[in-house]
């Protein structure tokens, strides 16, 4: 009798601990659901690049700003899941079930990867959209002594010599590559795409003349433009870049193709509880209103476009269609 009771209480204990662990709560203090509890939790902030990668730096900067502006009180450790261009991070996040202490930064890569990489099975639909934060207008850079003064100049030259001009960039499915391919397709011509892992190598290729042009974020080029080594001749986005407002957009130049924007936002696990979702949305809403953020966005040429919950989800599915079209056009 005594023994069975002991066994039973042990079993209950085991069951309880399994339950608690299944809920994904990390340490003892985070078991509740109210806002003040979330606040004291150290949130695992997932990114899909290694330390020093674009998403990694953005995430760490964002956390830094939120702490300085006292939007959050705890440091949020960043977790790098760099496998497979976002595929690793997406499947990690999908595996978090209804956890409340893991969220992830996402970029347009999260839309292209499931469509292009074999074995990347998780799509954005399986995750919970929390908030869309920014759109990074891409710009077109050429060497300062380049003969091309505008996007049309370059495209015309490409028409003269199809397949000979070179665009520098990252992987063949990154935003710049997709937009390059759609513009080329619209103009009925073609140019080479030269992949480099590091942004530094891409800019070096532009500086030494190996590559003729590159699409990238304004902040990548700013220092070289100031020094007179590069010039920005177009904005590869619907809106002009805040840093280079004089560069005409592709539409200004008469190109009608729908461009894929470089977006950054936040995703949560598939079954994140409603309270947690609201808590995070509140955090990012407040973060984007702080002076620290505004200053940061201005300096880096980012356009703040806050979208919460379903609005963000709808935007993503709409962008997913754009990406699909672009991939079809790029023959990938």
């Amino acid at each position: 009798m005594f023994r069975t009771r002991k066994i039973r209480s042990a079993l209950i204990l085991v069951a309880l601990s399994v339950l608690v662990s299944a809920c994904g709560f990390d340490s003892g203090g985070s078991g509740g659901g109210s806002e003040s509890d979330f606040e004291s939790t150290s949130v695992e902030f997932l990114v899909h690049t290694g330390p020093g990668g674009g998403s990694d730096i953005f995430a760490r900067d964002l956390i830094e700003i939120m702490r300085q502006e006292e939007v959050i009180s705890e440091n949020w450790p960043v977790r790098n899941e760099e496998a497979g261009e976002g595929a690793g991070a997406m499947s990690y996040l999908a595996g978090q079930g209804d956890a409340t202490d893991t969220i992830s930064a996402m970029t347009t890569t999260w839309l292209t990867t499931p469509l292009t990489i074999e074995g990347a099975e998780i799509t954005i639909d399986e995750l919970t959209p929390i908030a869309g934060l920014i759109v990074e207008p891409e710009v077109m850079a050429v060497a300062a002594d380049s003969p091309y003064k505008s996007l049309s100049d370059f495209v015309d030259a490409a028409k003269e010599a199809p397949g000979e001009l070179v665009q520098a960039g990252g992987s063949t499915t990154e935003v710049g590559a997709l937009n390059g391919a759609s513009i080329a397709a619209e103009a009925g011509t073609d140019w080479q795409f030269l992949s480099f892992e590091e942004v530094g190598q891409r800019i070096a290729a532009l500086l030494n003349g190996d590559a003729d042009m590159m699409f990238g974020s304004a902040s990548d080029f700013a220092a070289q433009v100031d020094a007179g080594k590069l010039k920005i001749i177009a904005a590869i986005s619907p809106e002009p870049s805040p840093i280079f407002p004089d560069a005409p957009t592709a539409a200004d130049e008469g190109f009608e193709t729908t461009l894929v924007p470089q977006v950054r936002g936040i995703m949560g696990p598939p079954d994140i509880p409603e309270e947690a979702l609201e808590y995070y949305q509140g955090v990012f809403e407040r973060a984007l209103e702080t002076d620290g953020w505004k200053e940061y966005a201005e300096r880096n040429g980012l356009v703040t476009e806050l979208r919460l919950g379903d609005k963000w989800g709808d935007f993503l599915s709409q962008q997913n269609e754009v990406v699909k079209e672009a991939l079809k056009g790029a023959d990938l």
Binding site: P51, G52, G53, V199, G200, Q201, A223, Q224, D226, A227
Partner: peptide, 28 residues
């Protein structure tokens, strides 16, 4: 001198400089 990092470690340092509002490059 160029503002282009050659490795992950230097990329993070570049990010930190950006966060301070500094922009390494030919004029740095």
């Amino acid at each position: 001198t160029l503002g282009i990092p050659g490795s992950a470690s230097t990329a993070i340092m570049l990010g930190a400089l950006f966060l301070y509002g500094l922009q390494p490059g030919p004029l740095f």
